[in-house]
Write a protein that binds this DNA or RNA. Structure first.
Lengths: 245, 245
DNA sequence: GCAACCTCTGAAGAACCTCTGAGCGACGGC
DNA sequence: GCCGTCGCTCAGAGGTTCTTCAGAGGTTGC
């Protein structure tokens, strides 16, 4: 299911070992999906459903990154964070929180280099944030920094800027995430289901043609009056590729 | 080019070794956040929760700078300072004190080149003070001195002066710190949470739209009638960037 | 103690984004 | 070629997010 990306090339940390991530969440479905996606990106994944198990596991697994649900059955998220920090000196933590739990004071989290994502989130968002954390922590993920390039189309993820042939292109949030997903998988046909799974939040009941709609928005902004880069593969999905092929 | 990319790059002292800072504070949350932020700026960080531990640690760790809470469970801050001074000849000390605590006594101390910040403080404030101390002590932090430049916008941190296109701009304290944070991260989208975590004090329960408000103040002063440099990225945050993109 | 200034709150309105439904067009099989 | 299916796009409702105003309360400096 999650086989996009050159499948089994594991990511590597600065020490040469493959990058390890620990997913801590008590909703089995969510854990499943997250783990799958992360594994598909080349991470070595483990998961735990509560804080105690997680901490025990972390001791031997020694993850480079942790995806941590703020609400756990046993221990509170901040506690887990502190413990983790104490035992592993360099670890990046990405929190998952309910939208209105932000008020519960996650203050200071982002200042310490960590980050958080509010539910419901899209996989793209989680993966992107994680990449950002890693990059900032110096465990280079992609060597070429935060520039995504396909043909004359360039995306700067940090600045959230997209440029084609020198012209700056304004994108909405969803448009941006869709394009990012396409650009991360150039020359590869992505099905609408795949796109929906990655770009839209996991609880989206999408019955309608959202993907087509947003593809059409993107085309208007990106392909407008130029040689098109977004191609439809009838009955299968869409591909993004530079003209030359 | 000019951009200060988030350093995985450690800071370096005059002797070439990475800059070391020791955080001495007995509130775990605060220590956590401070350490995280400092590490994120490229410091090598250690922390201690009381004076005795701190002094022992300092002996082997030999920090270039120390962030020291005035109120410690065991020894009094002044004592610690004296001891530190005796064992490390060149060390910069930044005190953390309660607002109404013994300002006069501390005033004497700062004469020695050290500095202090009163609680509750913002991370920006602590980090900036620390940079100032280092610079004054000759352990150059940023080679280009204390000028922040983004496009035609210039900030002199020491003088607390901001100029755009030749015109001097008056800013309140919060406005200044917000702008400084933006200017330290040009062309990079900062989320409201990040801004809140850095610019507002750590104990701020901020429920309302303070960030938006202050962004609007800044815009009125900085972008007024010019090509805007502060841009909203809907659903994500704000970016500061010079026009030429 | 007063004036000047600053910070934050609440609320209202504006701007913007997302998704739905529907109609039309394009493609491919027969 | 004709028809059915699949894909494209329009227009708009509804929701979310941003902006700004006006003012209360606090702080600072005189």
């Amino acid at each position: 299911m999650h086989t996009h990306r050159r499948p089994p090339s594991p990511l590597h940390g600065p020490d040469g070992s493959p990058l390890r991530v620990l997913v801590i969440d008590d909703e089995p479905d969510l854990t499943e999906v997250l783990s799958g996606a992360l594994a598909g990106e080349g991470w070595e994944v483990r998961s735990a459903a509560d804080g105690t198990t997680a901490l025990a596991l972390a001791r031997t697994f020694r993850p480079h990154a942790v995806v941590l649900d703020w609400m756990l059955p046993d221990i509170d998220g901040l506690q887990v964070l502190r413990q983790l920090r104490q035992e592993l000196k360099t670890v990046c933590v990405l929190f998952l929180t309910a939208r209105d739990a932000v008020e519960d004071r996650i203050a200071g989290i982002t200042a310490g280099g960590d980050d958080y994502v509010t539910k419901p989130f899209s996989l793209e968002e989680v993966l992107a944030r994680l990449r950002g954390l890693l990059r900032r922590a110096g465990m280079a993920h992609e060597p070429d920094g935060d520039q995504l390039v396909v043909g004359d189309l360039v995306m700067d993820e940090e600045a959230r800027e997209v440029v084609r042939g020198g012209a700056l292109i304004e994108l909405s949030r969803t448009e941006f995430e869709l394009l990012r997903f396409l650009m991360r998988n150039p020359r590869r046909v992505l099905s609408k289901a795949q796109i929906l799974d990655r770009v839209w939040s996991y609880d989206f009941g999408g019955r309608s043609h959202v993907v087509e709609l947003y593809i059409s928005y993107l085309r208007k902004k990106i392909d407008a009056g130029r040689t098109p880069m977004i191609h439809t593969v009838r009955g299968v999905g869409y591909v993004l590729k530079p003209e030359s092929s």
